[in-house]
Design a binder for these strands. Structure first.
Length: 823
RNA sequence: GCCCCCAUAGCCCAAUGGCAGAGGCGGGCGACUUAAAAUCGCUACAGUGUGGGUUCGAGUCCCACUGGGGGCACCA
């Protein structure tokens, strides 16, 4: 009496985990390893709790890619770490009354254990945690390199301020005028803050996107281009009556200079304040009142596009450099202080905003480009398109493009202007007034000013949180750690203070992919020689949420490191895959929405493999997965079906497959031909479907006349086990073992298709009449066009379809198709 | 307002310009069973959002529209 064994995924999981721990199939650091190198990287998680469904998708897909290249015979580096500094840790710690450190490291331990259970193919010798001093020490070192190069600097300016988080935000962290983290309305505050000079790299960050075309999602490239936002135009100098220095304005339309009828300066700019200062007391009072109102308005109000134009006349005049006209100077909040020069020439006839302002303030509108749509002064519609210059002196008769070039020449020859470009991108504000981050390695000395901490004194470790008030109050909590704060100046020895701000956590993630090369090194940030071998990252996998911020900053760091001679490449991530989100019933999962699906529950219920398989099979990886639409139970059912195939194989390992059933062998080798391309083009769902197809064929063969003893059945079952190991490592390993092999199906390799098995002797030709299918004919592969044409025209079905119509044309694509077009 | 992406069966999704269906979910029928579950087998269901165009031939290319999603948004 034989006992029927059934598929028990939980037992299989328990069985293989310790064996894999021993086997370490994904270790990449052996110096004798002669396999070609490949670097596959998953975006590292934030340790905010245990892994969730989103992680499960991301790591399932990253694992398919990583395991695929291992199977292909590559030495794949697939490391993992934790992006463990940042506000959420701090806020959670404050809320629970815990040290952010304890909270963070508990979560890391939890996630690490979950990743092991989830069978992520990580190289556990390459692990980093950004809140470890051994890591953030190199943030500080990099900061000092940037500082030496003039790429890290401090300035006082109006910064984005989150009144709830009580910290400054980078432009990139302000979404629709709201704080990215807490959705509070962001306000402005004048503060002295540290910046990285990312604008120095704006051109390269934009232009080099072209080199990623085809390897990054076009959506991400577009978002990056959009964000950098380069505008080409000209800087034009205007003299100001009663002022020594001319004022420069940036314009993309120098061709319309003759149509300028006023000038506008940003209300919150120093120029506006200066001009108001010189004006009569009434004007000054009006300006002060206006400025007060502007300062009180927040980003939400500023961003409203249908907002009426407001402003005050400053009592001053600018002189148009091409016709010496006097242009009244106004202050308004529709001009931004930190873009261009904070001042514009207003051409209401050809700019909607200037037109709206002119209308509101009753200022003149003068058409200088005739677009054929009528005079804006009459129609009330500014015209922004191409046309012929008019009212523009020597530019008259030229088209827009010619006129722009001509005007730039003209201005340049008179020393009144030059071609110029501007970027939407601003410098990266990196200071944060929070505790849980990398301390900025600068000491402020009354005598010496800013003094960089000598490199041999790094790291500047965070003081213990004990006794510090971490609650946000607008000043860094580190300022309260007086023992830590007060140090002698490294230069002169006088009493001095450490900088008490910490770095934006995006600094941590801007170079971590290099740190994996030597995550525990105490002598260097990363090994320059090893970076030449492994980097850049061949395949990066992560969420589209990081399409702008993280990727832009990592690209910036890479270019700086390139210029400093540390790396020999300029782009960090050669290929990028953005996976979608996991939704539930159409929306993002959240506790408050009540649609949270717990990953651990899913794993308990269906098993790791079924969840991983479901993630891969749900659809194209970049699409969102609605968990309500997919069937982890179905995946589990399929895995059991695959498992039973292995159980039903009765031939011995190593049996000669050549004698096996030809039809089944053909199915197996067709699979081998088609599987790899679907994985390499990220069509994981299609790859899984093909495995299902092969399993179906095997089932049919075993239950039918072929039988489980046929060598072709073994061949097919082994191929299934190996292919399935990308998606369902436990089931695959169990199958591999049942098939009589030693553990390590992940390293077994997937053979190439035997093309001799795929040769067809005949094929089915499709006969169409006027594009519609009318007949199918079995024909030889070598059939000539003429033969096939004859066969098609003599077919009864074809004749019937043609009826009494006349044949106009016969298209023959031997041996596959004939299309008969009738009149 | 500007830019980008998407639309195939009840549902999730396949389909080098050449037979609309690979795979799955759900449904129906059958085999096995005393019965059920599990398993195995069979099966129905759309002419590809709408309207034009290019082509011998369009789900696929082009144009417009509708619907959905995303990015940017007073950036001169």
């Amino acid at each position: 009496m034989t006992e029927e064994i059934s598929y028990d995924i939980q037992a299989i999981q328990e069985k293989w985990l310790p064996i894999w721990d021993e086997l370490r199939p994904f270790a990449s650091g052996n110096p004798d390893d002669s396999r070609p190198k490949k670097y596959v990287l998953d975006m590292f998680p934030y340790p905010s709790g245990d892994l969730h469904m989103g992680h499960a998708e991301a790591y399932a897909l990253g694992d398919v890619i990583s395991r695929y290249w291992v199977q292909k015979g590559f030495n794949v580096m697939h490391p993992i770490g934790w992006d463990s500094f940042g506000l959420p840790a701090e806020n959670a710690a404050i809320k629970r009354g815990l040290d952010p450190k304890g909270w963070t490291y508990d979560n890391i331990a939890q996630q690490r254990s979950s990743m092991r259970r989830y069978a992520c193919s990580f190289d556990w010798d390459r692990v980093l945690v950004t809140s470890d001093p051994i890591y953030y020490r190199w943030n500080q070192w990099l900061f000092l390199q940037f500082y030496k190069k003039g790429l890290a600097y401090r300035k006082n300016s109006n910064v984005n301020w989150c009144p709830s988080c009580q910290t400054v935000l980078a432009n990139e962290q302000v979404v629709q005028g709201l704080c990215e983290r807490c959705d509070s309305v962001v306000t402005k505050k004048a503060l002295t803050q540290w910046y990285f000079k990312v604008t120095d790299y704006a051109d390269r960050l934009l232009d080099d996107l072209d080199t990623l075309e085809g390897n990054w999602p076009s959506k991400v490239l577009q978002m990056q281009r959009n964000w950098i936002g380069r505008s080409q135009g000209a800087d034009v100098e205007f003299l100001i009556e009663g002022r020594q220095e001319p004022v420069t304005v940036f314009t993309t339309r120098p061709d319309t200079l003759f149509g300028a009828t006023f000038m506008v300066v940003a209300a919150d700019s120093s120029l506006a304040a200066e001009l108001a200062q010189k004006a009569d007391s009434e004007t000054k009072a009006a300006f002060d009142a206006y400025l007060e109102k502007v300062k009180q308005s927040n980003d939400i109000e500023r961003l409203a596009t249908d907002r009426p134009k407001t402003g005050v006349f400053l009592g001053a005049y600018a002189i148009n450099p091409v016709n010496d006209e006097r242009l009244p100077i106004w202050a308004s909040d529709y001009v931004l202080a930190d873009y261009g020069h904070g001042a514009i020439m207003a051409v209401p006839a050809h700019d909607q905003r200037d037109f709206d302002f002119a209308k509101a303030m009753n200022l003149p509108v003068r058409m200088v480009v005739d677009t054929g749509e009528g005079d804006p002064a009459v129609t009330g519609q500014p015209t922004t398109g191409d046309g012929v210059l008019t009212n523009s002196g020597e530019l008259n008769g030229l088209h827009k493009g010619e006129a722009i070039a001509r005007m730039i020449e003209l201005l340049a020859s008179r020393g009144k202007g030059k071609a110029a470009k501007n970027f939407r991108l601003r410098d990266w504000l990196i200071s944060r007034q929070r505790y849980w981050g990398t301390p900025i390695p600068i000491i402020h000395c009354a005598n010496c000013g800013e003094v960089p901490v000598p490199e041999d004194q790094l790291p500047i470790e965070l003081p213990s949180a004990e006794g510090l008030d971490l609650a946000p109050k607008g000043k860094s909590p580190l300022g309260g750690a007086t023992d830590w704060l007060n140090v002698p100046c490294p230069n002169c020895g006088a009493p001095a203070q450490r900088d008490s701000d910490t770095m934006d956590t995006f600094v941590d993630s801007s170079w971590y992919f290099l740190r994996y090369l030597s995550p525990n090194s105490t002598t260097e940030a990363f090994p320059v020689e090893a970076a030449k071998e492994w980097a850049p990252v061949d395949q990066y996998v992560g969420g589209v949420t990081h399409a702008i911020l993280h990727l832009l900053y990592a690209r910036f760091f890479t270019k700086v490191l390139h210029d400093l001679g540390f790396v020999d490449f300029e782009e960090p991530f050669t290929r990028l895959l953005n996976q979608g989100m996991v939704l539930m019933n159409g929306s993002a999962m959240s506790k408050s929405r009540g649609n949270l699906v717990k990953l651990s529950d899913q794993l308990d219920e269906h098993g790791v493999d079924a969840i991983r398989l479901t993630m891969a099979f749900a659809g194209p990886p970049e699409d969102d997965i609605d968990w309500a639409d997919v069937s982890p139970a179905g995946s589990a059912k399929f895995l059991a079906r695959a498992w039973r195939i292995a159980k039903d194989v009765t031939s011995a390992p190593g049996v000669n497959v050549v004698a096996g059933n030809a039809e089944l062998r053909k199915a197996t080798h067709t699979f081998l031909r088609d599987f790899a391309p679907s994985i390499e083009s990220f069509k994981f769902n299609v790859g899984v479907a093909k495995i299902m197809e092969l399993v179906n064929a095997l089932r049919k063969a075993i239950d039918g006349s072929v039988g489980g003893a046929d060598p072709a059945v073994r061949e097919g079952a082994e191929v299934v086990a190996k292919a399935l190991s990308l998606f369902a490592p436990y089931t695959a390993e169990e199958m591999w073992s049942m098939l009589g092999h030693e553990p390590g199906v992940a390293l077994a390799g997937l053979q190439e298709a035997d093309s001799s098995l795929l040769v067809e002797s005949s094929t089915v030709a499709v006969i169409q009449v006027d594009g519609k299918l009318r007949d199918k004919l079995e024909v030889s592969l070598e059939i000539s066009e003429d033969e096939l044409r004859e066969l098609a025209l003599s077919s009864e079905n074809t004749k019937r379809a043609i009826g009494d119509r006349q044949i106009a044309n016969v298209i023959v694509r031997a041996p596959k198709l004939v299309n008969i077009a009738t009149k």
